[in-house]
């Protein structure tokens, strides 16, 4: 299992970019009253056949050719189930893939969310061909980062520009702090 949930998010979202998604939606919704953390990763990439979807939760399935074991999805599923949660994946060829993991927020076995701001920043900066819509919400307060909006403002200035990279990271860090007051581990 990954030591942080954010690393699983990075891993599964990397799959989306490899599936040639043009838009990847990543959502984190924490509700301490319902005691849930709901994670969704939805892409409009190439999708998978029914057969592939069945097998993707199996560690011995992967589309890569450099090794024979694919642990990205199984790791996330295991992390959710270990935290008294739930996991589902749905996909359609040509339409995309939806991954949903639910964690019992207060569960002692829930992995920490970890450094989600760096995770999202890296996804954005190192995948200039892909758009991301990231939403983070904590007990009803929320913020979003939409690379389509940013792209429109930036024009031909790339996300890899150091000042832009820095801006994206502080946008993520400061807004997260305002939304959850640093309560989330």
């Amino acid at each position: 299992m990954m030591p942080e949930i954010s690393l699983s998010i990075l891993d599964v979202a990397e799959n989306s970019t490899r599936a040639k998604a043009s838009l990847v939606r990543i959502g984190i919704e924490i509700d301490t009253v319902k005691d849930t953390m709901v994670l969704t990763i939805d892409d409009d990439g190439c999708g998978m056949t029914e057969e592939q979807v069945k097998r993707v939760e199996d560690p011995f399935f992967t589309t890569r050719t450099t090794r024979k074991v694919g642990l990205g999805v199984p790791f996330l599923k295991q992390a959710a189930l270990a935290a008294n949660g739930d996991f589902s994946i749905a996909s359609e060829v040509g339409r995309g893939t939806n991954v949903r993991a639910v964690f019992q927020y207060s569960n002692i076995d829930r992995m920490p969310l970890g450094d989600i701001s760096h995770t999202i920043q890296q996804l954005v900066v190192y995948h200039p061909e892909t758009d991301f819509l990231y939403t983070y919400s904590y007990n009803g307060r929320s913020f979003a980062l939409d690379t389509r909006e940013m792209r429109e403002i930036l024009g031909d200035v790339p996300f890899s520009e150091p000042e832009v990279q820095e801006y994206i990271l502080s946008y993520l860090t400061e807004n997260k702090q305002e939304v959850d007051h640093g309560q989330v581990e």
């Binding site: 913020f143 940013m150 403002i153 930036l154 520009e161 000042e163 801006y167 807004n175």
Partner: peptide
Amino acid sequence: MKSLEELKAIREKMQG
């Protein structure tokens, strides 16, 4: 909330 205004400023500075 940190807004997109700052990004516009960066864009303007970078132009050229």
